[in-house]
Design a protein around this nucleic acid. Structure first.
Lengths: 188, 188
DNA sequence: CAAACTCTATACCGAATGGTATAATAACAA
DNA sequence: TTGTTATTATACCATTCGGTATAGAGTTTG
């Protein structure tokens, strides 16, 4: 592993554990065993480092969800596929997803939230599009894509948070639970 | 309004908007129009200030939820009352609830999360107790109080977050939605 | 070999951080 | 009036913050 990767990895771990604002550059370079100019050579600034770290992992998440977020005529199947994709990613990238989750809920004018907000918007519109497409077959869903997407993502993240806190595993039974809950909220 | 209250109010607004770590003492005293020794006289430290601000508002929230979290034989009614209590409080204390929410999702080793974790635990056990009591009438709920409480609180906070982001209002119809969704998750 | 480029270390910068020692002011009780 | 206590301001502290100027080393290219 080269210095750039080492820095990125250490930064992710520290940001995820203690938060972006609370972690100083000094701490990162100590953990990575390098010096400041090396970090600034690769990332330019603390903010640049955060953005780079986010980008790396988000790209993976985005492509996974993009593959999953396809409406083929059956809402239930689509949503189930999406939930599974999120769960799988969260399990395989716990440190990153923890950080992303905390930044998503961070104050709107914090650097953390600003850094993830565009990513979240991209993810959001992916989900929104599914509901928009499904609205053609289900008239009662029309004009509610945004609300549905927000609710759906909120529930997914709720369950991932519960998983992180050890209250449950993210197994197939859980996928069914969230799916049923959500569908019942929509169609009743 | 005396100096102590002014400081507390300004700190809440700044913490809620930009996050605890990102806000410096200097900024708070500038906003409050006082000087450092005054702040340190009343609160002792930055952490003491945070704890005091949290305590003030949490006490109100806790007593509201405590009144609402009573099981009288009907799960649905109990949960509905709890949801309404949360929604009402969130609407009337937006700034505070926003901050609490961000701190609840903050990294586990951050000062923010440490400061709210004990409060959250108190709230959590209030809800847990309701499910534990209800389990006497519904055998299938037995031993799952923790999971149910986590899910239930997660859904409530999801909807409050959606409300904060402007996707919906927290009206009675919304209470019904979350209630049905949750109940459907449990009893199916 | 020499020039150019990439990467990294020493040593430093000004500004901001959380926090405090000292003392003045004000209110109040004896 | 005098002593006491609570409250506030001036001025300061050591440390840490994010960031950089300079230059040495390693490798590549001409």
């Amino acid at each position: 592993m080269n210095n750039r990767e080492t820095i990125s990895k250490c930064a992710l771990e520290l940001f995820s554990k203690r938060g972006y604002d609370a972690v100083g550059i000094q701490e990162i370079i100590d953990a990575a065993g390098i010096t400041k100019p090396t970090l600034y050579h690769y990332f330019g600034s603390k903010e640049g480092l955060l953005k780079a770290v986010l980008q790396e992992h988000f790209d993976k998440l985005y492509s996974n969800i993009k593959k999953a977020a396809v409406y083929n005529g059956d809402v239930k199947t689509s949503l189930q596929t999406i939930i599974s994709a999120f769960f799988k990613f969260a399990k395989n990238n716990r440190t990153y997803y923890r950080m992303q989750l905390s930044m998503w809920f961070a104050p709107s004018e914090s650097d953390s939230n600003k850094a993830v907000s565009s990513h979240n918007a991209k993810l959001f519109s992916l989900i929104e599009d599914v509901f928009a497409a499904a609205a053609k077959d289900h008239g009662n869903m029309k004009g509610r894509q945004s609300l549905y997407a927000a609710t759906f993502l909120g529930m997914i993240n709720t369950y991932i948070g519960i998983f992180f806190n050890g209250y449950s595993d993210l197994d197939d039974k859980f996928v069914q639970t969230i799916l049923h809950q959500f569908m019942h909220g929509i169609f009743s």
